[in-house]
Amino acid sequence: MANVEKKVCLPGDLVQKLPEEGVLRLGPGLETREQHVAAVKSGVAHQNKSGSLLWLEGRQKRYIPAEGDVVVGTIVDRYGETFTVDINGPLLALLPQLAFEGATRRNRPNLKSGDLVYARVAAASRDLEPQLSCVDNLGRATVMGPLKDGILVQVTSSQARALLASPPAPVLQALGASLQYEVAVGQNGRVWVCSASPRTTVLVANAISASEFLSPLQIQTLVGRLVAQIQ
């Protein structure tokens, strides 16, 4: 099989031939076209070691929901038993009011329009509104649920992936060395930042939104300078 690892692709490009046998699973941004895999977006093609998965990592501002992603959403409205949530995608997502930890019909979260939630995409299909949930399969919240206070930063899909990576992204590490803060990164490109003081919160938000194209060394300098300003 041709090694397509780290190949930059554009819409309409043929990435590789379909394998003669076996199963090849395609991720977002790719489709089959005759006997080939073709890209429909621009980005970098990645393949796992065994060659059974192929996906395209692009950079975009809009989010296309996918099952299992964690997202930061803004409550838009409440319809009966569900909240409608803006997750920066093509359609508003639905979040059942009972999909919170310990929620019952008597005791459910009272969220208003504009409130933030950290949720998991429970179901996503191109024809339906995405379904969200703030609990895992065992009914526990783990990290999900309503987000109180804090501010929201909008980043691109590729930066959101970088912020969620482990080991932690250089910017989060550099900030964590001298400040205490909380972040919730959604794969939809929204990052919620909170800390004890508004100054720190704004600093962290600024550092995150300025760091997309900086090298680890540049990030160190940037964070050092920002921290020196408030201390």
Partner: peptide, 10 residues
């Protein structure tokens, strides 16, 4: 293309 909208071709 820069918005990441799926395209058949450029």
């Amino acid at each position: 293309a820069s918005a990441g909208v799926p395209l058949r071709d450029l």
